[in-house]
Each structure stands twice: as structure tokens, then as C-alpha cells.
């Protein structure tokens, strides 16, 4: 395969990415390649930079990119504003979804959908068509329709907020979805429902980056690749069995600098080329 063809087949290519928050370096040379249709899991201890990575991809201005590059479908992602990235098909399900009092969930979501559609030069959806669309998607994530008229995430329980994120994802139809700790704060039933919602959206060319601290979610959303993030770098990559291994061994080996006993699942950490 030629170098060009290989590039063309990636939805996301992160090369030697360095990023900092308030002048503190957090990401220190992160490399990651995601192909269309793949599900990647990023695991790692608290503070390893998982959310930072998600925010950098989404374009949060508090996170400064110091060096490295990010290509999205071959274009320079770092050149785009957060809303352009969203309209280009990048979706971030937040670890801590923000509430917006005074704006109904339905109104917010329709505004978002129409903003994305305008960008794509598609016609806007009216209230009736929207309601039809959103209802079908709500069924997918097992969400109570009453939540449509409530203010965005305002007074929502942890589980309701996470479902709302997945609902938004389902409506906005992204090409690359990043789920940041979508499992945290969910009980096992809610977790299953959310995971089923995500699985229903899998398929085709849609790619996912599932960020999680725990292996549990990955029993439901089975990843193609698993990466371990530590101190701002991906230190190991493997297939889904790597997640189980981490579950057994924990993350303490990262501090000691020793890797756990090499397993079958281990693959070569991808080097930046």
C-alpha cells in the first residue's frame, strides 16, 4: 500500500501531539491512527490526559497545541474552529455535560442539528420533522420524552445527562464520536442501555474513540483497538484483551515503569512515521 493510500484511508491521524493547559504540558507526543468504522478505546489512570486529548480534538481553547499535527479525513483539523469541527462530523460526548438553564433540550438540539445541516448545505428541519426524528432516537437510548421539554441537562441525573449526550450524538450523526467516560456515574442497567445505543450507531464508516477508566464499558462496546495513555503518551496498544489485562493488573505498573508480563494481545506501539 502506498503512503498516500494509507493516509487517505484514515479518518484521524494524530502525530506527535504535544498540548498544554495553562503552560503545563499534558500531552507529550501522542500518536494515534483511526480508520473509518473502527472503535478505539483509550484507557489510562486519572490525570493521564484522556479528557485533554478529547478536548484538543474538539478544539477547546483552554488547551494549547504546542506541536504535532492532527489530520481529519486528510485535512488539518487544528485549523478549524470548534463549531466547524462539529459540523465536519466530530462529536464529543462530554465527561461532564454542561447544563444550560432556560433552553429546552428540544430547542437546543434542533438548533444544533440545523447549524450542522446549514454547514452541510442541507435544508433545515422544521419542528414537526425534528420531533419525529428525535423520538425515534430517544427510543434508541431509552430516554424519557419528558426530558425534551426540560432545560438542557438542568437538574438531570448523572445517567440522564449521559443518555442525553448519546441522544445528541444519534441526532447529529457524526463521523467520529469521542465518548469521554460515558460510563462514569452509570449503574449497570443504564450502562447497558447507553452501550446498546452506541452499538446501534456503529457500522458503516462511523468511528468511535471510547475513553474510559474502567474495562467494564468495553464488555458492552467491544473495541477493535485498545490504547493505554500514561502521562500524555500512548504507551501500549493492543486488541480488546488488553482491556481485560488492565482490569487484572490495574495501572500501577505504569508508575513503576515496568510493563506487565507481555501478553499475546500485545501489539507494537505504533511509531510516528
Amino acid at each position: 500500500m502506498s503512503e498516500n493510500e494509507k493516509e487517505g484511508s484514515m479518518i484521524l491521524e494524530v502525530n506527535d501531539l504535544h498540548a498544554s493547559v495553562e503552560d503545563t504540558p499534558i500531552l507529550r507526543g501522542l500518536n494515534l491512527n483511526v480508520k473509518p468504522g473502527e472503535v478505539h478505546a483509550i484507557m489510562g489512570p486519572n490525570g493521564s490526559g484522556k479528557s485533554t486529548f478529547a478536548n484538543v480534538i474538539a478544539g477547546h481553547e483552554d488547551y494549547a497545541v504546542d506541536s504535532g499535527s492532527v489530520l481529519y479525513n486528510g485535512i488539518d483539523l487544528l485549523d478549524l474552529s470548534p463549531e466547524e469541527r462539529a459540523c465536519e462530523g466530530i462529536f464529543l460526548a462530554f465527561q461532564y455535560p454542561v447544563s444550560i438553564p432556560g433552553i429546552s433540550n428540544a430547542y437546543f438540539l434542533r438548533s444544533a442539528l440545523n447549524a450542522v445541516r446549514r454547514y452541510r448545505e442541507e435544508s433545515e428541519v422544521d419542528a414537526v420533522d425534528f420531533l419525529q426524528l428525535v423520538r425515534s432516537k430517544m427510543a434508541l437510548v431509552g430516554m424519557d420524552e419528558k426530558l425534551l421539554q426540560r432545560s438542557v441537562n438542568d437538574g438531570f441525573s448523572g445517567g440522564e445527562k449521559k443518555r442525553n449526550e448519546i441522544l445528541q450524538m444519534a441526532v447529529l450523526d457524526p463521523k467520529l464520536a469521542i465518548l469521554d467516560e460515558t460510563d462514569s456515574g452509570l449503574d449497570i442497567d443504564a450502562l447497558r442501555i447507553v452501550a446498546e445505543g452506541v452499538n446501534a450507531l456503529r457500522g458503516g464508516d462511523r468511528s468511535f474513540i471510547v475513553v474510559t477508566h474502567y474495562q467494564r464499558l468495553l464488555d458492552y462496546i467491544v473495541p477493535d483497538h485498545v490504547h493505554v495513555l500514561s502521562q500524555g503518551q500512548i504507551v501500549r496498544s493492543g486488541d480488546k484483551t488488553l482491556a481485560h489485562e488492565l482490569e487484572r493488573e490495574g495501572y500501577s505498573w505504569l508508575d513503576s515503569g515496568d510493563k506487565p508480563k507481555k501478553s499475546e494481545a500485545d501489539q507494537k506501539v505504533q511509531e510516528a512515521s
Binding site: 478544539g59 470548534p82 469541527r85 454542561v98 438540539l109 444544533a112
Partner: peptide, 11 residues
Amino acid sequence: QIFYCNQRGIS
């Protein structure tokens, strides 16, 4: 809040 909206495509 603004970033949240931006991330959903809203300027």
C-alpha cells in the same frame, strides 16, 4: 456553556 454549544455546531 459556549464550548458545549460550539461542539454541537452552534456558533
